[in-house]
Amino acid sequence: MSKEDGWSVEVFSMLQNMEVQQVAYVPDAGHARLIELCEADSRMRAVPLTSEEEGVALLAGAWLGGERGVLLMQSSGVGNCINMLAMIQECRIPFLTLVTMRGEWGEFNPWQVPMGQATNGLLHNIGVIVHRPDTAERLVEVVNAAAHLAFDAGRAVAVLISQQIIGFKDWHK
């Protein structure tokens, strides 16, 4: 089992246990295995988006209709979500997002750096609680805690997943 498979399978299992049913995503390589697992599960509905803010609106609707959801995206997509997250904050809708980070650890593409560096602060400023696991071993535990904070305490929570712990894109292969 590769490093990515390991955490993806465990996070998927945790999302199942938390009864997450709508999985909205704009693909990122870091989420590829998790997306496959969610698409293959008949109790989950994987919803590909054209842009990340759709996922915020979708999950607000899911909650209004009685379902839990999660938004999978890359850090560049966080910038697309900011105004839609104002609704999450004002209505106090539980919201969980798993953000794979670009623009920091070992980044090759300079165009990823500004948004990657701004991600944490932007989420904080719009009222989203940010969790950052510091090791791969703690990732699943942190996602689990974030899901409880979101759905039990009715909060907006983001888990930022660094390439430091899931590996980074090697442009020199």
Binding site: Q22, E53, L58, A60, L64, G65, G66, E67, A86
Partner: peptide, 22 residues
């Protein structure tokens, strides 16, 4: 009724989330 007072551009997809849940 759920009225949006913001979230411009989100109404249709918010409706999708409700429709999938119900």
């Amino acid at each position: 009724n759920f009225y949006l007072w913001g979230a411009m551009g989100g109404a249709a997809v918010l409706g999708l989330g409700v429709a999938l849940a119900q």
